[in-house]
């Protein structure tokens, strides 16, 4: 379980001026949750994840992991990296070994495990992510963007974290790799009970995979709620400059044109239901 308590973070700008990146953020993530972090560019999403992983020290407030204050308890901090895995946006920032297999094994090796356990974890991660056998002996630099991403994710999963952080894991990938990677993450979340905290810009991904949504706006916590409650106010999300699901846009436009349709529609299935009920009503009246 992760808890942010009144976390504030300042960047040091030029000539020792301070830029506020996050202000007074408090929330709790339960074990096994799938949380999507959304927000406009520069709203502090990546900073939030970096604080969570202990890369940035909060300027104010506290970060609790399993009830232990990470920055006050040395023991808790040393466990942090074992406990939380972080997949960065750009996979080429972490791939460096001469074969894919070695690269995936790099993380577990750093944890000081024995060879048998390392092998087991690597095999497990490779299976979960679905990296084909022939790629394992290749150099990670020969792979395509989607394959690199998979290797990077497998490298972090091989560390068997209890919490997995992902910074835009599917940005810039082709649709097929996108769906594959998101499904892998969802399965990992379900099968192993691993908490997933994922930054995304796609609202479609949010309602397809998440069960909770954390919305950031200009460094402040805008809302932290279930997917349903968050999307109930799509117009508010639109108000802070967020992209909303295409189907919601259609319904907002219909509403603006004078049709009496609900505006809290965010998936095609819901849209079908909504239109059906409207048609039924009309038929009933007419």
């Amino acid at each position: 379980m992760v808890e942010f308590k009144n976390v504030t973070y300042f960047y040091e700008g030029l000539s020792s001026s301070k830029v506020k990146a996050l202000s007074n953020i408090s929330f709790k993530v339960e074990q096994g949750d799938f949380v999507c972090v959304i927000g406009h560019t520069g709203s502090g999403k990546t900073t939030l994840l970096k604080i969570l992983n202990g890369l940035f020290k909060p300027s104010g407030g506290r970060l609790y992991i399993n009830g232990a204050d990470v920055w006050a308890d040395k023991n808790a901090f040393s466990k942090l990296r074992k406990y939380i895995g972080f997949v960065f946006q750009n996979p080429s920032y972490q791939l460096f070994e001469d074969t894919v297999l070695k690269d995936i094994a790099f993380g577990p090796k750093n944890l000081g495990l024995n060879n048998l356990e390392i092998e087991r974890r690597v095999k497990n991660a490779v299976d979960v992510v679905g990296i084909s056998e022939d790629l394992l002996t290749k150099s990670p630099f020969e792979l395509s963007g989607g394959q690199k991403k998979r290797v990077a994710i497998a490298g972090v999963m091989a560390m068997s974290p209890k919490i997995l952080l992902l910074d835009e894991p599917v940005a810039g990938l082709d649709p097929k790799s996108r769906v594959h990677i998101l499904k892998v993450i969802k399965k990992y979340n379900k099968d192993f009970g691993v908490t997933v905290i994922l930054i995304t810009h796609s609202m479609e991904d949010v309602y397809m995979y998440a069960n909770k949504v954390l919305v950031l706006n200009k460094g402040e916590l805008f809302s932290y709620d279930s997917v349903d409650s968050t999307f109930k106010c799509v117009d508010r999300l639109k108000g802070i400059g967020l992209d909303i699901p295409d189907i919601s846009k259609v319904f907002l436009k219909l509403k603006n044109k004078g049709f009496s349709v609900p505006i809290n529609v965010y998936s095609v299935d819901m849209a079908v239901e909504a239109i059906k009920s409207i048609l039924l009503k009309r038929r009933g009246n007419g």
Binding site: K50, R81, I84, F86, F88, Y93, Q94, N110, V156
Partner: peptide, 16 residues
Amino acid sequence: LETEKIIFAQKSRGVD
């Protein structure tokens, strides 16, 4: 900037 990011990425993979 890139060096900083790489250091972060490797740190979170448990590099001591």
